[in-house]
């Protein structure tokens, strides 16, 4: 890239050290994935500390089916939880973002700021009242309570992403529709919503990964029968005399859905990632 004013040998050394650094960094980042896969594929008898890095003598796939049967009910809970919480928080976020970007009123920026603050609080600070409130509403222990928590505390980020997304829709477009007699909701359904598909993809994927990966509420607000996958995995791995092939197989299964999203729809995932910090 740089101009050929410097001597070629310097460029070569620079390039070599750059690729060398990238190579070792890539190894460091891939190391845990390699370890998880290798350990999950070993028969329990072959797993020991000193040969942990070596490949299995032959692939032992049954750890995955064993882990699956142990985590099946957790996976079902997590799928229901993720689908419901993502749908609700995304739809609400879209409507909120529409109001905050196209129907600003006096104080709407201030209210938006109050929403944003909710994104940054350590959730420990609302945990006890949340626990009490869900108990009083008879929602403690099951999935509906957990869904409610994910929807409410998902609102700040979904609202933020949609607000930034909708601010790119030209106001002139909205104005001309209103001159044609379109009201608040018909502007949304006829103009804003059809343009929102990328916004829904970014927000939806972000919420799916957040809800699927969440642990604190899962462990504090659900009973054993409705524990999500992260809690199931923590219990599977938490025992002292664990044979490590099962937790590793379980980890791979718990990571698979979000990793697939990340690998195939990475561009949208990164946009969600950056939305929380980089201003448009």
């Amino acid at each position: 890239m740089s101009k050929p004013t410097t001597t070629t040998s310097r460029i070569t050394i620079g390039t070599i050290s750059m690729y060398g650094a990238l190579f070792f960094l890539a190894l460091f980042f891939l190391m845990p994935a390699y370890m998880a896969i290798v350990t999950a594929l070993k028969p329990p008898a072959e797993i020991n500390l000193s040969t942990a890095w070596e490949l299995p003598s032959k692939f032992h796939w049954s750890s995955f089916s064993d882990a699956l049967s142990l985590l099946k009910s957790n996976i079902v809970s997590s799928v229901i939880l993720t689908v419901c919480a993502t749908t609700l928080s995304t739809v609400l976020g879209s409507l909120n973002g529409y109001v905050f970007s196209k129907w600003k009123f006096k104080g709407s920026e201030f209210i938006f700021t109050l929403f944003l603050f909710g994104m940054f609080i350590p959730y420990q600070v609302i945990l006890i009242p949340l626990f009490q409130t869900l108990r009083a509403m008879n929602l403690y222990g099951g999935l509906p309570g957990l869904i409610l928590a994910h929807v409410v505390y998902g609102l700040p980020i979904t609202t933020l992403i949609f607000r930034n997304f909708y601010s790119q829709i030209p106001t002139a477009l909205i104005e001309s529709a209103r001159l044609d007699g379109a009201g608040f909701f018909s502007v949304y359904t006829r103009i804003v919503f059809p343009l929102s598909i990328p916004g829904f993809v970014v927000t939806g994927l972000w919420q799916v990964t957040q809800v699927w990966n969440e642990f604190l509420w899962g462990i504090c607000l659900t009973r054993h029968a409705d524990n999500p996958i992260t809690v199931g995995l923590a219990q599977l791995a938490g025992g002292q005399a664990v044979s490590w092939n099962l937790p590793m197989a379980g980890s791979i299964m718990a990571a698979a859905p979000v990793l697939l999203i990340y690998i195939f729809l990475g561009r949208y995932f990164i946009r969600g990632l950056l939305a929380g910090s980089v201003k448009e």
Binding site: F29, P32, A52, T230, A237, M248, G250, V258, L259, Y262
Partner: peptide, 22 residues
């Protein structure tokens, strides 16, 4: 870039379990 960013997609429980073994 994909290699450096994939840990972000993982749950802390997944990465914690693997790092405990590492």
């Amino acid at each position: 870039r994909t290699i450096f960013l994939y840990p972000m997609a993982l749950s802390f429980i997944v990465s914690g379990t693997i790092w405990r073994w590492l």
